[in-house]
Amino acid sequence: MAGIRDRTPLWVQTRCGLEPRTLTALAMVLVVAVGLAAGYFWTGRPEPVRAPELVRAAPATALPAGWAGPEQEARQETGPPPAPPVSLAPPVSPAPSGAEVVVDVGGKVRRPGVLTLPAGSRVADALRAAGGVRSGADLTGINRARVLADGEQVLVDVPGVPAGGSGPGPGSGGGAGGTAGGGAPGTPVSLNTATVEQLDTLPGVGPVLAQHIIDHRTEHGGFRSVGELREVSGIGERRFADLEPLVRP
């Protein structure tokens, strides 16, 4: 301590009146201060920083087949909505409003003449509109369920007319005493009134094809033109060309 005192400047010795204890305390304070300063600088020194490791994305987990999320699962649990009922019946096209047919009813009926009936009327409706048939009239061969065609003639028990004979209006030579079914040689056969036997007499037409013509006539309410004969199953262009001059609506 004497060495430290000797090295201390004179003004310090004079000012502080250094004693051995004082010098010891001062030395300890200096040592502590130096230690703290050294620790502060040691902790504040720059340190190397390591770069962060790359985090790889987790592989996508394959979803099980058929899984479509919670909403789809809930929909599958409740089941699909019921399908609307399907109607197997073909749509029926109603007759246009105000459509009419004009027919000539003659023979043994109470009020023969030209009648105007709603479209889709049948032979029975025409007979009823004519006042009904007379007592003793022969209705054999008359198809009272047949749908009427516009402009045709319905004859009841007229001598010289084939059974069930009916045909176009008087202007076509189908009146009383005429041949409405094409019975006379050279007279075209009426597609709307001919029977299966009469159609069977046409070239290339047998009983089966004749029945097809009758079925088509009943289904479509008669033939309005000879060209509609092409729509009958079994009649091609060549057969139609042979039949065209031999038939009429």
Rank of each mutant, 00 (worst) to 15 (best):
P84Y: 06
P112H: 10
L127Y: 10
S87T: 14
D157L: 01
R122C: 02
A180D: 08
E100L: 13
P112Q: 02
S97F: 09
R134P: 07
R146G: 00
P170W: 10
G136I: 07
L148D: 07
V92R: 08
G171Y: 01
G169P: 00
G141K: 12
G151Q: 04
A184W: 14
A137Q: 06
A99L: 15
V105D: 01
P91Q: 09
G165R: 01
L117Q: 04
A145R: 11
V156C: 00
V156W: 02
S87F: 06
A119M: 12
A89I: 08
G136A: 07
D104W: 05
R110H: 11
A163H: 04
S93G: 03
G186Y: 00
V158C: 14
A95M: 09
V114S: 10
G164I: 02
A124Q: 15
P118R: 14
V158D: 15
T140C: 06
E152Y: 05
A180T: 09
G107W: 02
A176P: 08
G186H: 14
A130W: 13
P162L: 12
P118T: 02
A89R: 14
P94Q: 06
L88F: 10
A99N: 01
G169F: 02
D150Y: 10
A119N: 12
P84Q: 11
E100Q: 15
R144E: 15
G164E: 04
K108R: 15
G113M: 11
V101Q: 09
A119T: 06
V156Q: 06
V147L: 15
R110Y: 04
G120C: 05
G171T: 11
P94N: 00
L148S: 12
D125L: 03
A99Y: 06
A89Q: 11
R111A: 09
R111E: 07
T140N: 15
G151S: 11
G120N: 12
G178Y: 03
P94F: 04
S97M: 05
G177T: 08
V114M: 06
A176Q: 06
G186A: 10
A89F: 13
G132W: 13
P162S: 12
A99K: 06
L88H: 12
D150P: 09
G178N: 02
G131H: 02
R134S: 07
A180K: 04
G174T: 14
P96K: 12
V105P: 01
A145H: 11
Q153H: 13
V156S: 02
